[in-house]
Design a protein around this nucleic acid. Structure first.
Length: 289
DNA sequence: TCTAACCTGATC
DNA sequence: GATCAGGTTAGA
């Protein structure tokens, strides 16, 4: 469900309610979902207080006074919220962290792709997910982006989804960003023009910033901490709009599979430049004349 | 660099 | 019943 903007929104909300809270035990209702590092267990956080909440790419990082961190990856359908401990747990609630005053932080995830980790803060940099991440879109310079694209022979869509190139983009935002810059999702990444790379670089920041400001996109599952949806889906130009008129040119938005993902684009505003312009057949006739 | 697999639930 | 879903990753 969530990409960078949605995770950022949740991180900000969590920061408000969690910092200063003393943790109790962790209750695990599905063992696959909670993954503490060696020597740590569901009681390791007990009595320590939350001192900060961060986000790196799509990963939430909760810092505790014990120099332990809890990591949460929501993947497709994960959701966090604060609930009275006495309240009945909805189906698929896999992990609960006791807080003060009879409340707990709950993690629910029907598809069970999401993960809750517990590890020493000093080990965070070695985490296999974090280690592979490229820069945050907000820290990515045009030159760096250009260099990264230059090495890529796949589609721009697949390349931007690759978290080692840029961290935090997912299916929605890649489609939205590519439409803004008028680049076809199947364009080969290392064939983008420099003006397109410049536009791409700023569109990334613009789209993500706008989305964060309105609480992210809620398509089917995503809800913030207090179950409130975001509203960026109302501003989508292509994602979820196949068959509807392009807001820019009126042509019907197309949808097809690119890089294994449902991909939305405007066939008119986002033209595919095939390979190199075909070398024009030589007009000069050798030998004769 | 691409695909299949991991899961469940919603929709066609 | 088949297909699709906002993510990631092992393996081809």
């Amino acid at each position: 469900m969530p990409e960078l903007p949605e995770v950022e929104v949740v991180a900000r909300q969590l920061r408000e309610v969690l910092v200063g809270q003393v943790a109790g035990a962790v209750h695990v209702h599905h063992p696959d979902v909670f993954q503490p590092q060696a020597k740590l267990n569901r009681r390791s956080l007990r009595g320590t207080s939350c001192v900060g909440v961060r986000r790196r790419s799509k990963l939430l990082i909760l810092d505790f006074s014990s120099d332990l961190v809890v990591t949460v990856h929501l993947r497709m359908t994960g959701h966090l919220w604060i609930s009275p401990s006495a309240e009945v747990r909805p189906a698929h609630t896999h992990v609960c962290l006791e807080l003060q005053r009879g409340r707990e932080l709950r993690f629910r995830d029907p598809r069970r792709f999401g993960r809750v980790g517990l590890l020493p803060a000093e080990n965070l940099a070695d985490d296999s997910y974090i280690r592979r991440l490229g820069p945050e879109p907000f820290d990515l310079t045009v030159d760096d982006l250009a260099n990264r694209l230059a090495a890529r022979t796949g589609t721009i869509k697949g390349t931007l989804l690759d978290q080692s190139v840029v961290a935090g983009l997912g299916n929605i935002y890649v489609d939205e960003i590519l439409h803004r810059v008028g680049v076809h999702p199947e364009q080969v990444a290392n064939r983008l023009l420099s003006r397109e790379i410049e536009a791409l670089s700023s569109a990334m920041v613009d789209v993500l910033t706008e989305a964060i400001a309105v609480g992210g996109s809620s398509i089917r599952d995503y809800l913030g901490l207090s179950q409130e949806p975001g509203s960026f889906q109302d501003r989508h130009r292509v994602f979820g709009r196949s068959g509807l008129p392009c807001r820019q040119c009126g042509q019907a938005i197309a949808k097809r599979k690119v890089a294994g993902r449902g991909t939305h684009f405007c066939p008119f505003c986002q033209r595919l430049r095939r390979r190199k312009p075909r070398p024009r057949r030589s007009v000069t006739v050798r030998g004769t004349l």
